[in-house]
Design a protein around this nucleic acid. Structure first.
Lengths: 211, 211
DNA sequence: AGAATCAAACCGACAGACAGTCGGTAACAA
DNA sequence: TTGTTACCGACTGTCTGTCGGTTTGATTCT
């Protein structure tokens, strides 16, 4: 018995399943067969909607990161909220994404998921950088920080945070505290902020329950 | 006609070919078949010496990065050379590696090489961090820089340099200059060095002929 | 209304490529 | 002669992507 649906609907069904499987088993260890069986379609149908397995990955990432960036973007715009507080809200928007449960963080560091990890990082960086740069520029205008290179500071810190801290989720409480303290210390130096002014805004983001 | 060699010799033959192919065609696009044909051995022989294709990659990386780190390490120890000059020498030691010709930099950013890229970065970071941290500590002792977190500064800057600058090789001269200037500016801030003191030591490393 | 037409969505057998296995064989040393 | 080390190549299982053909439902024609 053949069930016909609109392309958009089918595509989303496929992406839903793929997102879940990629998140739990990893990209390499999820076969296209796994996906099409769970969706309940034939091989040909899968390749009618997507040209390749990698295109499915790209679409999954685009949909997921797109949502996260949209949320972060709305926070970024609310100029009535103080800059530091907005930063907190934006970063939280990135961390809370249903679907990619707790398993993802373990998954994403396994070597087999290098491709997924890289693509996510690239997309996230491209989307977040303008937002973060904007925030820093606001901070400069408000006189709470100073730098000649806001975009590069944003790039450097966000990139580092992403790479270092997702490896950090696995480590001890002790190591985490050291790393986060150092990170904020460095960030304050890069932006020539008052010592400790960033601490209270950002530190809670890295507490155990958030990671 | 069967040719028998000592295991070490065969292993190195395999690694030589694998290194060249991974560097030119990428890891995913190099099949074990490609390797064993060029070495001139049978499938079984390849898997007699290595348990899997990934183990070959690991061995290739270990051998290559090991050599680079050894060179960098010898420079790091020569305390009669000024710290900044030693830094230059060490970084040069990483860039000059025969075999992985110019093609590698283009290769390594293609999505299919994410795994190789990640493994190289991880190994390089693990090896370089102690050396760089040592240098910074010497700098602190000499009074030319100041930070409470030398290891984290080393990690942050090296990680960023690796990620940002290998993407940079493709870009315009203009963009490169902006990024490198910003990078050094930020590095001087992180280490509270005199403005411009790092510039002359590090800038030549990023000129067109080196990249 | 009923028939003819057409495109969008779907199917599943199949081809091609590839990683890894295994039982057996040649070379060499003890 | 015996045992070990290095080597061989046919074979298996899995996976991605293809292709000719089929069903469905909407639109147009009679």
């Amino acid at each position: 018995m053949r069930i016909v649906k609109e392309a958009e609907e089918r595509k989303n069904e496929i992406l839903d399943v793929a997102e879940r499987l990629f998140g739990t088993k990893g990209f390499d260890h999820t076969s296209t067969g796994d996906i099409l069986v769970e969706v309940g379609i034939a091989r040909g149908t899968l390749y009618y909607h997507f040209q390749s397995k990698e295109e499915i990955l790209d679409a999954v990432i685009e949909r997921m990161i797109g949502q996260m960036l949209a949320k972060a973007g709305t926070f970024a715009k609310q100029k009535e909220i103080p800059v530091l507080q907005r930063l907190t809200l934006m970063i939280r928007a990135l961390q809370i994404n249903e679907g990619w449960g707790d398993g993802l963080m373990e998954q994403i560091h396994k070597p087999q998921n290098a491709l997924m990890h890289q693509k996510i990082q690239e997309r996230l960086l491209a989307g977040m950088n303008p937002l973060l740069t904007g925030l820093i520029e606001e901070g400069i205008a408000a006189g709470i920080c100073h730098t000649d290179y806001p975009a590069e500071v944003a790039e450097m810190t966000f990139l580092y945070a992403n790479t270092a801290f997702d490896a950090l989720a696995v480590q001890t409480e002790e190591a985490r505290r050291q790393k986060t303290t150092a990170f904020i210390y460095n960030l304050e130096r890069l932006l020539q902020m008052e010592q400790g002014s960033m601490m209270q805004a950002v530190l809670p983001l890295f507490s155990a329950d958030v990671l």
